[in-house]
Design a protein around this nucleic acid. Sequence first.
DNA 1: ATATGTTAAATGTATGACATATAACATTTC
DNA 2: GAAATGTTATATGTCATACATTTAACATAT
Lengths: 238, 238
Amino acid sequence: MNNFKPIKQIKASDEVFNQLREAIFSGRFSAGDKLPSERELIETFAVSRTVVREAIKSLEARGLVVIKQGATGGAFVKEMTFERLSSDCNDLFFLGKMSFNEICQARLHIEPIVAGLAAKHCTPEHAKLLLEANDNESLTLQYPQTIKLRSQVHYLLADMCNNRFLTAIDKSLIQLVGSITSKFQPDTDKIHPAGMHNSIIDAVIAGDEKAAEKAMREHLLTFLTLLENIEAEFRENQ
Amino acid sequence: MNNFKPIKQIKASDEVFNQLREAIFSGRFSAGDKLPSERELIETFAVSRTVVREAIKSLEARGLVVIKQGATGGAFVKEMTFERLSSDCNDLFFLGKMSFNEICQARLHIEPIVAGLAAKHCTPEHAKLLLEANDNESLTLQYPQTIKLRSQVHYLLADMCNNRFLTAIDKSLIQLVGSITSKFQPDTDKIHPAGMHNSIIDAVIAGDEKAAEKAMREHLLTFLTLLENIEAEFRENQ
DNA sequence: ATATGTTAAATGTATGACATATAACATTTC
DNA sequence: GAAATGTTATATGTCATACATTTAACATAT
């Protein structure tokens, strides 16, 4: 009969990392707060600077803190945002775990729902923002900016759906499509001219859920199909 | 006229991190491969060991590599899985960035779509698995196991939708609901008796997309509503 | 008052020494 | 010969110290 348990040899740096992470999760440090300086952590945990630094580096890599250098520097707890999901989606895509087609199809399924919900919750302020964004689409700018302008309406709608999970997912997809698209620099005016969102915006502002869904679905069908063709072509020329 | 650009002072460790990450993304190192040892990287990048180690630590924190100690140790490229997304969702929930209600609502919107897609792609093998899982629901087991049994059908459907992004999202939601539910241990037989998925399975096996969507939506409506009430009650008693 | 210099406090990097983990090989012991 | 034990080589893990760099705030000079 053997009641011994295996020794769990966990690395000091991981232990420090875990404790700091728990402290953040428990709310002991919240967004904007500064973690103790390296010097203090060294004393608190009674470990070397190497260990403390590696732990903080890990926190940074996981997106839990940002590190600022200089006199008023330190590790500051970051507001947890959808960017975490977004960056993971990026990783998955670039590691070949998802195809461009799958991302587009997912958008095609999810974004109409989001648009519908946005219509349900549209306030006058929202309407104003949407109309502004729509006007700005016709501005002429440098390349990466154009994509940002033309997708602004999508981001706004994502924010309006009143469900932070769907917001996060939707934004990740929009961002991902954008960042992939920017790789093969298509003529934005050709595949996504200004004003393409008019009917969606009308429906949303009118509060017409079904119409918003339908308008979004149709928009995505034309736009994403075009994009997928360009992407496939681009991929073959590689 | 000022054509100067600000100097981008990027940290050596970040630079090393970026180069290694790109190497992994580009496929120069793929899953299972070992990155060069610290010693080699020091020479390659002409930096100190500190820098190399912090870079690798970051790769580890981002889940891109696992580090093994010992004679045959080193940093090995990890098979990237969708569990990353799940863990992100967990973080978001426990940091208070999403409510239980939002998660349920998201499921309510997404899972019918997934069920519909599953119906479209259902093969005889899938059908077999679904029926098996359905039979197993009536087994009586310990607590955490019961939840697993009763959600097996959902996981299977998630795998059948032929879109790895939706699969990942759906599984994350299912898993999250399960892990939250297990905190307040409700009487599973009461809120989710065996056989609750019959109509969904029928529709999916019949390949009837619309019917599958509808059946799933109805199932979730009754089940999740019950669950949300229990959760709200539980939360008040805290 | 503006520009410039100084200082202090934080993180960033370099280096060398030693600790530990682990697989592979060598040796003993029966 | 085989099983247990010891040895070694090669990784990563930790510690300690020195110095570099960044940055904000303060001090000084012109």
